[in-house]
Simulated assay, not measured.
Amino acid sequence: MAKSADSVTGPLPRRCCNAQFACEWLYAAINHIKGGKTMEETYVGIDIHRDYGVACVRDLKGEIVDEFQFGNNIEGIQKVREKLGENNVHVAIESTGNMWVVLWDTLEENKLDLHLVHPLKTKAIASNKLKNDKLDAKMLSRLLRGDLLVCSYVPPRDVRDEREIVRLRASLVRLRTQVINKLRSILHKYCIRYKGSLRQNAGIEFLSSLEIRPVDKSAVQSYLETLKTLNSEIASVNAQIAKNEKEEIRLLMSIPGIDYYSAVLINSEIGDISRFPSHNKLASWAGLVPSMHQSGTTFYNGNITKEGSKRLRWILVQCAHASIKTNSKINEFYSKIAKRRGDNKAIVAVARKLVKIIYAVLSSGNPSLYGDPKKTETKIKRMRTIAEK
């Protein structure tokens, strides 16, 4: 029969105020139970920049065992991978633009315990008066060891790829809007009004036939070539997005106001729905809950927090506008609030209601009760048509 930990290490005193002693006792007890084998558990803080990164490695007792700098390139990241190995390594990486992505993907292959640190909220917990890369890496490793970090959710790689493709489409649409605004600006110089869409074939033909000064004619032709290219690229990206036929996408498309693009964007931003214990938590992450201010006996709610995923919040507001036009129940809900609080707050309330519906649909795996099966089937057919182009 195996001996108890107390028979070797001695019992832990009831009134032990020394945290380091308690940690050492626990460490020795675990090693004894494991047959005397040392569990080399390490905590690594990495402060990453565009050209290089700084790492600080601590052991279970909190002592620094290694500090090193590496280049933020393939060779430097492979150096980090070799140094850290694969066993019982916990890594905290500060989120800095997109500069952490390659490092994360590489270390993820080693199946390490990775944490992407929220820089602003971590600064609120512990900020150094003297700030440099070494101190930041030390602080990250110390907070990681104490489980005091505020971390961001990083979805699996396939979900990250979904995010990239829908964000690419949003970026291309913004560029197209800029080009159309440039074209309308030229039309305003000549007091020309065109009520249709300039990005459609009829609008392009109208712009090509304009009799204006040569300098503006040249600008219009240049913008039209750019517009045609963007239209082609957006159509290509739309086809890629429409090929996504996950069950979650079909379920989301059963909700009024949500089509295939909105469904893919919502699903990619949310990721695993089980990480939210309730629809209220999901709404809070989308930034669609009111801010709260309290001091003593004074308490009041302010505007929505607008924290969390701004893309999810944006698409929910867009879907809210569409849903009030396609569903009578949601329109009735919107009208009641609009009479009392105005249109803007009513739209936000509808977006918040959509969050509740989305949570119920994804959690239960059943289509929305607000949806119309025939309309949902029409959406799916249109999605397949676009995917085949």
Rank of each mutant, 00 (worst) to 15 (best):
A2T: 13
K3G: 13
K3A: 09
G10P: 04
P11T: 12
R14W: 05
R14Q: 08
C17V: 13
A19L: 15
F21C: 02
Y27L: 14
A28M: 06
N31T: 15
I33H: 09
K34E: 15
G36L: 09
G36M: 08
E40H: 12
E41K: 15
E41D: 14
Y43S: 10
G45C: 07
G45K: 04
D47H: 13
I48T: 10
I48V: 15
V57T: 11
V57C: 12
L60E: 08
E63D: 14
I64N: 09
N72L: 09
I77P: 01
I77C: 06
Q78T: 07
V80S: 04
I93V: 15
E94S: 03
M99H: 15
V101G: 04
L107M: 04
E108F: 03
L116T: 08
D133M: 10
L135W: 05
L135S: 08
L135T: 12
L148R: 13
S152V: 08
Y153G: 10
Y153R: 05
P155L: 03
D158T: 14
D158C: 11
V166M: 07
R169K: 12
L175P: 00
Q178T: 09
I180Y: 00
L183S: 07
R184L: 07
I186M: 09
I186R: 13
K189H: 13
A202F: 08
F206T: 08
S208R: 13
V220L: 11
Q221A: 14
Y223M: 09
E225K: 10
T226Q: 01
L227Q: 00
T229W: 01
S236M: 02
N238M: 00
Q240H: 10
R250M: 06
L251M: 08
Y261R: 06
G271C: 10
D272Y: 15
I273K: 12
A283F: 02
S284Y: 08
S291Q: 07
Q294W: 02
Q294V: 10
G302S: 07
T305E: 00
W314L: 05
A322K: 13
I330G: 03
N331P: 03
K339P: 01
G342A: 06
N344R: 15
K345E: 11
V350I: 14
L354H: 12
I357Q: 11
I358M: 05
N366P: 00
S368K: 00
Y370M: 04
K375C: 06
R382Q: 14
A387F: 03
E388H: 10
K389W: 03
